[in-house]
């Protein structure tokens, strides 16, 4: 009698799998530059390096936590209900948004209470994240890739880290851009979108390196 076993966390090579998930989520499947999710804050908060780092850290934090929470919700509540013909695939979209919104609100209140310094560095970006499609995207991709528990956590961290790398790179470029001559018609979002396109092309080189 052979039962299909899902990979458990005690299997050999599990650490290597996690590393592959991390690299793949961060680079080869960079959520911003290959999926083009989370563009609004990417364009509006990338004017200054300092705020880009703050926003990036907030996204890393939120994707990591919400991916883990949503994985738990999906695999332990929604998936078992499939046996009773409950449309888990459709429900997950609604429930993931609810989880993300509630988590972000809660975190904002908590951080404001615990440390004003941390709130000013990170907390003020949280309300901007609630409706960020990159966060929801990370959770949905994670389910498609059949990631559980710790793998989901690492995937969320990687997706957030990839987004942060992209926005920090963009902020660096835009700070230098201030001192260069940009055609008047392309100033602001125009040139930023062109740069994002070139960056996305650069990230294409990671494609096919590893596949999850």
């Amino acid at each position: 009698m052979i039962l299909a076993q899902p990979p458990t966390e005690l299997q050999p090579g599990f650490a290597a799998t996690l590393l592959v998930i991390l690299v793949s989520a961060t680079f080869t499947e960079n959520i911003l530059l290959t999926r083009f999710l989370g563009m609004c804050p990417f364009l509006s908060i990338s004017r200054q390096l300092k705020s880009a780092v703050g926003m990036g850290l907030a996204v890393v934090f939120v994707t990591t936590c919400t991916c883990f929470l949503n994985a738990t919700l999906y695999w332990y509540v929604l998936e078992p209900l499939k046996a009773y013909h409950i449309p888990a695939e459709s429900l997950k979209l609604i429930l993931f948004i609810v989880v993300i919104a509630a988590f972000v609100q809660l975190m904002e209140m908590l951080i404001e209470r615990i440390s004003i310094g941390l709130y000013f560095a990170l907390g003020i970006f949280l309300p901007l994240i609630t409706v960020n499609c990159a966060i929801l995207g990370a959770s949905l991709f994670m389910i498609n890739k059949d990631l559980h528990g710790l793998s989901a956590l690492v995937y969320g961290f990687g997706a957030g880290l990839g987004w942060m790398i992209a926005i920090v790179l963009m902020a660096g470029i835009r700070q230098r851009l201030k001192r260069s001559k940009v055609p008047a018609a392309l100033e602001g979002p125009g040139i930023t979108l062109i740069i994002a396109g070139i960056m996305a092309m650069a990230f294409v080189i990671f494609q096919g390196m590893i596949k999850l």
Binding site: L81, I86, P87, L91, L95
Partner: peptide
């Protein structure tokens, strides 16, 4: 199915 789904979403929300 509809009732349980709605109840699930409402309950979690």
């Amino acid at each position: 199915v509809i009732l349980i789904s709605a109840g699930l979403v409402l309950g979690i929300s």
